[in-house]
Structures are given as structure tokens and as C-alpha cells.
């Protein structure tokens, strides 16, 4: 595989990651969200492996394998079990309607392109152009956390945000040191379990996973 082809495939994967971020923003069904999130993990993992191959960095293969195991299989599975146990069947409830969220999303992408433009000029890595996509994935994850009411979708937004951070690390500096990445991966995994416990706690206290309920004081009812 030539260097040019690797760059082309990598930017195609970056575009697909951006597409899945928007997919998360516009998807109405919770199970649909999980599928898109898993796909984002697949693209991220393949992209990391390709960067590892063409930059000759072996530790990126371990990162790619870890992404594949944790973000494509483990996390969606844990969330699937949680959603199943909590019997969430309703469509995703959002605070801003979907077309508006989409337009805000486009503005966010343009913003992150402008923000990363100077870094793009300075960097000499093959992945420098994907940095803008990485930053927009982070910000789109944040946007998803802001515009959703239910805890589960906010968690998926948070995990998408983490995907963005991982992608940013790969495109800005060819990945974090392996120790840091291992730590982050473990954290995410444990966070997913803790989120699960929180979901049950929130539901037993408020009878709903709608976080708007938390803004009210209980005694005033």
C-alpha cells in the first residue's frame, strides 16, 4: 500500500467518522444509535491501524485492536443490555428539533475547521488534515450531550466525544503513549459499568431517566 493511498483511505475514513457523528445527531431510535456508535468504532479502529501501518508505529496496532474490542463490541453490548433491562423503547427525545441540530452541527464543523487551520499549517504528519474532523467529532458529541434529555443518549454522546479525542490524538501526534491509552480504555469500560448503576439509581429515585427531573427539588412537590 503506497503512502498516497494510505492518506486517501485515511481521509475517507475520517469522512465516514464525521458522517457517523452526524448520524448519532439525527438518529431517533436508541438501538439505531448503538449501531451507529459501533460503526464509528469500526472506522476509528481501521483508521488507527492504517496510520500505524504507514507511520510504522507498532503500538497503534494495539490501540486499534483495543478500540475494536471495547468500542465496537464491549460498550455497545453493555449499553444494549442496560437499555434492554431498563425497557427503554421510546424514541430519543431531544430538546432542539433535529433539522436545527443538524444546522448547528454544520456550523460546529466549520468552526473546528477554522480552529485547527493553524495546526494544519504547522504539522508535517500525514494525518494533519483529519484533525479538523477529530475536533468536530468531539464538539458534535458535546452537542449531542447538550441537546438530549435522556441519560442513555447523553452517555452515547459522551462516548462519541471520547472517540473524537482518541481520533484527535492519532491525527495530531500519532496517538498517546500506550500506557495512557490503556488507562483511558480501562476508564471508559469501568465508566460504562458505573453509568449502568447510575441509571438504575436515577430511575428508582425519579421514576424516569429524564434528567430534567433532577432540576426540581423533591420537597417542593
Amino acid at each position: 500500500m503506497s503512502h498516497e493511498l494510505a492518506i486517501e483511505i485515511n481521509s475517507l475514513l475520517a469522512a465516514l467518522i464525521l458522517l457517523t457523528s452526524f448520524g448519532l445527531l439525527v438518529q431517533r431510535r436508541v438501538y439505531g444509535l448503538l449501531h451507529i456508535f459501533a460503526w464509528q468504532g469500526v472506522f476509528l479502529s481501521v483508521s488507527t491501524a492504517i496510520v500505524g501501518y504507514s507511520a510504522g508505529l507498532n503500538h497503534l496496532y494495539i490501540s486499534a485492536a483495543m478500540t475494536l474490542v471495547i468500542k465496537v463490541f464491549a460498550l455497545p453490548y453493555i449499553l444494549y443490555v442496560l437499555i434492554h433491562k431498563l425497557r427503554i423503547k421510546k424514541e430519543v427525545e431531544d430538546m432542539v428539533n433535529i433539522p436545527t441540530t443538524m444546522l448547528i452541527g454544520i456550523a460546529v464543523v466549520i468552526f473546528s475547521y477554522h480552529l485547527t487551520a493553524p495546526i494544519r499549517e504547522l504539522s508535517t504528519l500525514m494525518t494533519r488534515s483529519t484533525l479538523a474532523v477529530a475536533l468536530s467529532t468531539v464538539l458534535l458529541g458535546l452537542l449531542m450531550m447538550i441537546t438530549r434529555k435522556k441519560a442513555v443518549t447523553q452517555i452515547i454522546g459522551f462516548l462519541a466525544l471520547e472517540n473524537g479525542l482518541f481520533f484527535a490524538a492519532t491525527s495530531a501526534t500519532y496517538g498517546m503513549p500506550l500506557v495512557v491509552e490503556l488507562g483511558v480504555a480501562l476508564d471508559i469500560l469501568i465508566a460504562a459499568f458505573i453509568f449502568g448503576m447510575f441509571f438504575f439509581q436515577i430511575r428508582t429515585s425519579f421514576d424516569s431517566l429524564d434528567l430534567k427531573e433532577m432540576e426540581k427539588l423533591k420537597d417542593l412537590d
Binding site: 481521509s11 469522512a15 464525521l18 443538524m102 452541527g105 464543523v109 474532523v133
Partner: peptide, 18 residues
């Protein structure tokens, strides 16, 4: 709207990735 989004993403990725 999805078609518009895809087209806009196409234009953005021309500037960002190519």
C-alpha cells in the same frame, strides 16, 4: 435535509481533507 447535510459535508470535506 439529510441530502443537504450530506452535500454540505461533501463540500466541507473537500476543504478539510483534500
Amino acid at each position: 435535509g439529510a441530502a443537504f447535510l450530506l452535500a454540505t459535508l461533501g463540500m466541507l470535506s473537500y476543504f478539510m481533507l483534500e
